[in-house]
Write a protein that binds this DNA or RNA. Structure first.
Lengths: 193, 193, 193, 193
DNA sequence: CATGAATGAGAGTTCATTCAT
DNA sequence: GATGAATGAACTCTCATTCAT
């Protein structure tokens, strides 16, 4: 594939992303994508054979950008509380930027095209949180919670909000409530960095 | 509308339910519903003008069957812990019966047809849990948690699982973990009814 | 057919008339007629098998009410000019009451269901005018015009206006122009009754 | 739009014209047009979204070819009588070629899709005739008739025949009668070019 | 007589997909 | 690589028409 081809693929991904964020997965047609990309039918098909294919490449791109700073932080022997705060802040930012969220689309995609993509994503997230909790508890920075339960509730509450905010208006307060409860469950009331 | 008509509407709802549970909302066509109901095109259109219409009637039916036993329980001055256990058991049953869950469909529907239905459902659920927590705390059956945070995390964790179990395999353990954590946060380790 | 049946047929004709006047012939469906009559499908079909059937009965009713006062007038040896004025006034009234005109519908019907109905109507009209012109010329009340040409131009100009007023706004002036020219061609400028 | 597209549009217009002339406006479906054009459904929709759209383009084409030789003739200071004879001959040719007349279709179209197209066509025609009559009277080639009445009767009689010949058989004689009367009203009996 | 449920044919419309240019 | 014309399948929706009640 030449330089031009790669460029066009990039263009397609960018425009398709916005479309998926806006309309979900199933409602987006190849025709729609042609239009937002200013590309002809044949032109699009030269690069991708279906919306599924395009979507999967977008997902792959996202997965690759995942937050690796947990591992990094632990490697650098940073404070567990500091890492926790960073994550919670990142989560908050994401939860409040509902606009450009692919949540709907990802969910629809997953329901329709059963595959292991989501399973992997989920496992990765679980692993990271487990790592962090073990690290924090070992260092006596976190309370000795039941790690498994805690990780489960963190992840599903996060995902729950992430998805429902597409459907019902969720105010900042709710997001703060949930994140704050997580923080308290882990570090108690002592402090807040 | 005669007796026959009501019967047919019921038939349509039952069959459509299964279809929506299986395929989500958007992927179901009027034609599909015709087929599963053994009804002709015109016959179906006699009763419903769109999948949306059918889906909304199904949702309404569900909403009407909502768990009112919280209010009842409080009215009868039952133990808060007993009520809690009942709810948690109900939630568990629902979470483990992923097969017939409309979660996907509801979510898709909500994303595509923005309306107040979900908002109402959410508010109702919040109200009920708030009621229960206030009641339990007042009676000193529950720990004096921050009610708002607790309710938020309960609901979103529940919804998070409910939805993601359509996408990734969730084992019984996870469900138990989450529900158990909720129970512990409220009543501590003392007992389990 | 019982009394009730005749009543219902009358009801159907009245309501269908308005519908045909409003929407033309082809655009009216049996369903539409059911609705305006407040009748069920089966109920309507008991009386008429198609819109064509209904329309033809309506037309028959109209044809029967045709202006027979030309013959009457001549029989009573009335003045030809007086009869002419009566007819022209009647035509004017009809041309100005475009609202309830079946023109569109009749035309559509005729185009689609070629039959002799229109031919008969046309011939009858020609006969009557010919009669009147012969009578008037014989009595030296009318100028000695070429009867055939005159009758043709009268009838087609009338029909032309009748139809086009459904499509373009025709002002009173135009109607008066045309009718006045007919009068002048026949009786000259002497007088106006 | 490429060369191929323009070709196809032309093909569609030609074939659709014949269909409209045969069946009127409303009775023609997109499917019918597909068939006569030997085009697939999607292929037709590529170019036109509805029969209305196609019909309007055909009408536009006709309007553009309108008889401009009145203006030309006057510009070249031709004899008014000569111009009149040309027009009358053209009208006669049109009135006798009922086969390919869009009259029915235009009328139906106008009844159903009220718009200014017909009004414009009508005004244009009136203007031209008025121009000619003024010119002829000024040059003392025509009798000093009342221009407005005369124009009205000419146009509506013409339209009347044009439309009714779709419905009732009109013989050559009738057409000649009407046109001859117009000629006589204007130039008298002196001569015939 | 009248109702309204049901059938089935057919029109409108939209797309994924292919292909000549 | 890219264009846009064309195909054909699938879906939505509307009716004429029938029939059990």
């Amino acid at each position: 594939m030449g330089k031009k081809g790669i460029q066009t693929k990039g263009l397609i991904q960018e425009n398709a992303y916005l479309l998926f964020a806006e309309k979900g997965f199933a409602a987006v047609t190849m025709k729609d994508i042609c239009e937002v990309c200013g590309l002809s039918r044949g032109g699009l098909y030269r690069h991708y054979g279906s919306t599924k294919e395009i979507f999967e490449e977008i997902l792959q791109g996202i997965a690759d950008m995942d937050f690796d700073f947990i591992k990094e932080g632990i490697g650098k022997e940073q404070s567990a509380r500091k890492i926790l705060n960073q994550i919670l802040e990142k989560m908050q930012r994401e939860l409040l930027d509902e606009e450009n969220s692919l949540s709907c689309a990802i969910y629809e995609y997953s329901c329709h095209c059963k595959n292991d993509f989501m399973i992997e994503m989920n496992q990765r997230a679980k692993q990271k949180w487990t790592l962090l909790l073990e690290y924090g508890i070992k260092n006596e920075e976190f309370k000795p919670v039941d790690i498994e339960s805690m990780v489960d509730i963190i992840l599903y509450a996060y995902q729950g909000i992430r998805m429902w905010e597409q459907v019902i208006p969720i105010d900042v307060k709710t997001v703060e409530n949930v994140l704050e409860k997580i923080r308290k469950d882990l570090v108690g009331d002592y402090d807040r960095v």
